[in-house]
Design a protein around this nucleic acid. Structure first.
Length: 837
DNA sequence: AGCGTAACGATTTTT
DNA sequence: TCGTTACGCT
């Protein structure tokens, strides 16, 4: 695999600090004059004196990790790297961080300041200059996507093989899986353990509650799961002395927790948080393992450090050798996962934890234009409790940040989509991102995008691997690997139908509980129980599973999956009713097979186990991209990404900040950071929008502009609503006493004010608006008054109730009337939808 | 046992 | 509004 010529630059990297790119230049074209990083083609690699440490520590378990730990010292592809070329196009702080290779280092890297680039260079430095072996380096990222990107970039500099086989690079969870597979047996975790996702955990909690006879009404599985998760996030087991047991509820929780753990152990399963917590226990409680790991990892890098939770931090420390060679990179202003246990304190108090730590700040931003930077900077400056840094850019100019106040969410969507249409020629569609707080908000944008025939891709919502049919197949595969897992067994026992109904399942459950054996064992026992009428059916099922299990030894993961489908008739079962839905599901399953095939072809370790590990950890961000399409995602998912054009939508109170955060100062600050993250994704164009009414809980309700819009620097803002001044509230009588009046905007614009670049969709948009109104009023009753409305008249709408006419445009049937309804919301309607009160 | 309907509930973010 | 679940009917 010796490349005749290694790629000479990181393809999608930031431009050199010395040559900032022009604000509007397409960022797709990397500076072609990028400095060569590798000075010698790999094929000419001279025999490099292998440092003594380049042999992995002797370890019994090392051989157990298939490709991971078996470096090939002699052939290790480590071209000599010229330090100067590694540093050439970095700015000063970046260089410093790359060269600092001893002792704890904290890099406070502002948004868009080139931290990924620095991290990749640092890895190259450690290997190429400091002469560490790849397997001595542990690099932790926040998402799989980030890991893939770093792997790719590092591969370009160091050679793919080095990166694929040596370097430990992945999310905390992925690293945790690896450590558990290697050493988990010390904690009684079988090597074939399965990973439960959040859904599985909840199901597991339900099982436990049932067994303990605890009413789910008083202890909802969901909240119990979250309790357990919280404990694990701080490395607190069910028998931890500091587990709160003061109140009755707390004692109950502790009891459920203990039972849950016992059940998990019997199942041979681990949950998400276990993937952090158990490796921590391994490293801290099992000297044999801990010492080996601490000896092995000579340098640890952690990205997105601000979003690590306590367990992750503890794990990090447990893996760290006495030299404390750790580089943590993060931005306290981008900490947005407090709700999930992230502790910003980890980054804020880094130097207390690691006395003498070097702190380096990246404050030069290479991503965004000045207005974007200043606006987002003004926002985040309002937060207290931050390290504090000011981003600057070498480039001047750039478009102002646009602010749009919409009447409704559909108008907001309309604005966004028209802006996209206007800018479409200048940026590829995949460079447009519509960012919102909650997944539910995607809908109005999807509707508009469809209407304009603009391709889009929604991230979030239902993941591919969360679809029922996919989970079914996965359950089969998991069951084969680990039959003791009751969650998988329960899921597919009667799917496709085998005539094993609830009664039978209950019998088996009872048997399992009585004899304290796994569900699978109980099922097997029942299958040979001559007194059981269901025995023949159960025996058939057991035979099926055993037969399939035999395939594991010699079949690929793909082969096993195919056999499962063939032997169970699962596909046929999906399609049996001939419905479109069933066909879609079958299609999804085939897609799963395709993914499996791809995996088998590409991976060195293409075992079923390896594949199951991977799919357990994929997020919807990891799903295949590719198409040139507008991207719709939540602010959380947008972290770490960047786009030419960004829309931060739904900038309203109770949405952004979300109403769950409203009474808590710390939460408000987190929401502010969330908005900051969203804004700083933008390279060239940033839009902020809000609507004065929004559907929620299935009802339209008034919405106020977000507090986060207050105090933004006006000189960088462009108001997209320079329309007639808002109507003073005194001009209209309140429709109902005591109800708020939500200052509706009047009159439709004659020309489209935000159309500046391409003002030619004016007519189209009017039509669109009409269509929209018709749709909204789909249930409108026949009317008495077709026209003749005037301002101030009282009127009635079958859906919205009573209201007062505030404006009238046009005449006759097509007249449009704005009505302020009794609920305080102004709606623009077709006149004929109204009747007299 | 399986399907359909009706009522109900729940709506933040995700490795 | 939507999705899920529970129950009742076939």
């Amino acid at each position: 695999m010796a490349h005749p010529q290694l790629p000479l630059f990181e393809p999608s990297d930031d431009p050199p600090a010395a040559a900032p790119r022009a604000p509007l230049a397409s960022s797709r074209t990397p500076a072609s004059a990028a400095t060569p990083v590798v000075s010698t083609p790999a094929s000419a690699t001279p025999a490099v004196a292998t440092p003594a440490s380049a042999t992995p520590p002797v370890s019994a378990s090392a051989s157990a990790t298939p490709p991971a730990v078996a470096p090939k010292p002699a052939r290790t592809q480590r071209p000599p790297v010229d330090p100067e070329t590694l540093l050439a196009d970095l700015n000063e702080p970046q260089r410093e961080s790359v060269m600092h290779s001893e002792g704890p280092l904290l890099v406070l890297a502002g948004a868009g300041s080139g931290k990924t680039r620095a991290l990749v260079r640092k890895i190259a430095w450690l290997i190429g200059v400091e002469r560490m072996a790849p397997w001595q380096i542990l690099a932790v990222t926040f998402t799989n996507k980030a890991a893939a990107e770093m792997r790719e970039r590092a591969g370009h500099m160091l050679g793919q093989e080095t990166v694929e086989n040596g370097l430990w690079l992945g999310t905390f969870h992925a690293i945790g899986v690896r450590l558990l597979r290697m050493h988990g047996h010390h904690l009684g975790i079988p090597r074939s353990f399965v990973i439960h996702d959040a859904d599985d955990s909840e199901t597991m909690v339900k099982r436990v509650l049932k067994r303990l006879n605890i009413d789910e009404k008083s202890f909802p599985a969901r909240s119990v799961r979250s309790y357990i998760d919280k404990q694990k996030q701080v490395c607190r087991g069910p028998d931890a002395p500091d587990l709160p047991t003061g109140t009755l509820v707390e004692r109950r929780h502790a009891q459920i927790y203990a039972a849950y753990e016992a059940e998990m152990k019997q199942a041979g399963a681990v949950d998400f948080s276990d993937l952090i917590w158990l490796p921590y226990r391994l490293a801290s409680e099992v000297p044999q393992v801990g010492d080996e790991l601490r000896l092995r990892f000579r340098y640890i890098l952690v990205d997105e450090f601000q979003d690590t939770n306590r367990a992750q931090f503890l794990l990090l420390k447990a893996l760290l050798g006495p030299e404390r060679n750790v580089c943590a990179v993060g931005d306290d202003d981008q900490s947005i996962y407090r709700w999930r246990g992230a502790e910003v304190e980890n980054i804020l108090e880094f130097d207390r934890e690691f006395p003498g730590a070097t702190v380096i700040r990246f404050e030069q931003n290479y991503r965004s234009t000045r207005p974007i930077l200043d606006v987002s900077g003004a926002l985040i400056a309002k937060n207290r409790g931050r390290h504090g840094k000011t981003l600057f850019t070498a480039r001047d100019g750039g478009e102002k940040v646009r602010l749009f106040a919409a009447e409704s969410e559909s108008e907001e969507a309309d604005y966004v989509v028209r802006r996209i249409a206007a800018l479409r020629g200048k940026h590829p569609l995949r460079e447009f991102a519509i960012i919102y707080r909650t997944n539910a908000q995607s809908r109005s944008f999807e509707d508009r995008l469809r209407a304009y025939a603009i391709p889009y891709k929604v991230f979030g919502g239902l993941r591919f691997y969360d679809r029922a049919e996919i989970k079914d197949v996965l359950a089969y595969l998991r069951l084969l690997q680990s039959p003791s897992d009751p969650i998988a067994l329960d899921r597919i026992l009667n799917r496709p139908n085998r005539g094993i109904g609830a009664t039978t399942v209950a019998r088996i459950e009872a048997r399992s509980q009585a004899s304290n054996e796994t569900l699978w064992a109980a099922l097997c026992a029942e299958a040979v129980d001559t007194t059981s009428s269901a025995a023949p059916k159960l025996r058939a099922f057991v035979d099926l599973i055993i037969e399939l299990q035999a395939l594991l030894a010699h079949e690929t993961a793909l082969g096993v999956a195919r056999a499962v489908l063939a032997k169970t008739g699962y596909l046929a079962w999906l399609q049996k009713d001939g419905s479109v839905e069933g066909e879609t599901r079958a299609e999804n399953v085939r897609e799963l097979l395709a993914a499996l095939g791809e995996f088998s072809d590409q991976r060195a370790d293409n075992s079923l186990a390896a594949w199951l590990d991977e799919v357990a950890l994929v997020s919807n961000l990891d799903e295949k991209q590719g198409d040139d399409a507008v991207v719709l995602l939540t602010a959380h998912m947008a972290k770490g990404l960047e786009f030419d054009v960004v829309f931060v939508t739904g900038m309203e109170e109770d949405l952004m900040p979300h109403f769950n955060s409203r009474d808590d100062h710390a939460s408000i600050e987190e929401e502010r950071r969330l908005v900051y993250v969203a804004m700083t994704r933008a390279r060239h164009h940033l839009h902020l929008s809000h609507a004065s009414s929004r559907r929620r809980f299935g009802q339209t309700r008034p919405a106020l502009p977000s507090r986060f819009l207050d105090g933004l620097p006006g000189e960088h803002l462009l108001d997209e609503n320079p329309r007639p001044a808002r109507r003073p509230r005194t001009e209209l009588p309140a429709a109902r006493p005591g109800l708020a009046w939500s200052s509706p905007r009047t009159a439709t614009p004659k020309a489209d004010p935000y159309a500046d670049p391409v003002p030619d969709w004016e007519n189209e948009s009017q039509d669109a608006a009409d269509k929209r109104n018709h749709r909204v009023l789909g249930t409108a009753s026949p009317t008495t008054a077709a026209s003749g409305w005037a301002r101030g008249m009282r009127c009635f709408h079958p859906q919205f109730g009573e209201g007062i006419v505030t404006t009238v445009e046009g005449a006759g049937e097509r007249a449009k009337v704005t009505v302020s309804f009794w609920d305080g919301i102004a709606r623009k309607l077709i006149a004929k939808a109204l009747s007299e009160p």
